[in-house]
Amino acid sequence: MHNIEKSADTQIERFTQREETLLHTDFSQSPTLLDGFLHPELFEISPIGSYTSRSEIVNWLLVKSPTQRWHLSQFKVVELAADTMLVCYQANSISDGVVKATGSLRSSIWRFHDQQWRLQFHQATKN
């Protein structure tokens, strides 16, 4: 099988880093890097309640503004299975160096697939 670190702090650090990398990296410069982050069966439920396919998510990641930044906080990581983690957190966009008061609660399911943690499901709910 694979060696997965069990420490709660290590898990929070690992998935905070992966979520931040997805949001803050300019993948338009290296689109093939996305395959190391995104599970082949990835889908999302958008803030308005619609399904978003993997290809739509990839397209968004490739065209999003490279200067957009997010403040991510209140991380919780729950092990659902040895190869499956639920990650929940608060995301607020940053504009002119100021964190917006409203944002979204987010949940992601990460699966250990092909020797890497890959995002398989994501949902954002505005708050």
Rank of each mutant, 00 (worst) to 15 (best):
R118C: 10
C88N: 08
L23D: 14
W60A: 14
S65N: 14
E20V: 03
I57A: 11
A124D: 13
R106F: 11
T25R: 01
E13W: 01
N92A: 03
A81N: 05
A91K: 00
I45K: 00
K76Q: 15
Q29E: 15
T84M: 14
T16C: 06
T10W: 11
D83F: 01
E44L: 09
V77W: 02
I57G: 09
V78H: 02
T102A: 12
S28P: 04
T10Q: 13
I109H: 01
S108E: 10
F75C: 06
L34S: 07
Q29A: 12
I45V: 15
T102S: 14
R106Y: 09
Q68M: 10
S93E: 15
F15M: 09
L86P: 05
K6F: 08
W60D: 14
E79G: 07
P47S: 05
E19Y: 04
T16N: 10
L86R: 03
E13S: 11
S108L: 07
S108W: 05
I45Q: 03
T52P: 03
Q68R: 10
Y51R: 08
I57V: 13
R54Y: 07
E20L: 13
P47T: 05
G36N: 13
P40G: 08
L34W: 03
L119T: 07
S55M: 06
R106A: 12
F37T: 05
L62D: 12
V98S: 12
E20Y: 02
K100D: 15
C88V: 07
T102D: 09
N92T: 06
I4M: 08
G49M: 04
G103F: 12
F37Y: 14
N92S: 09
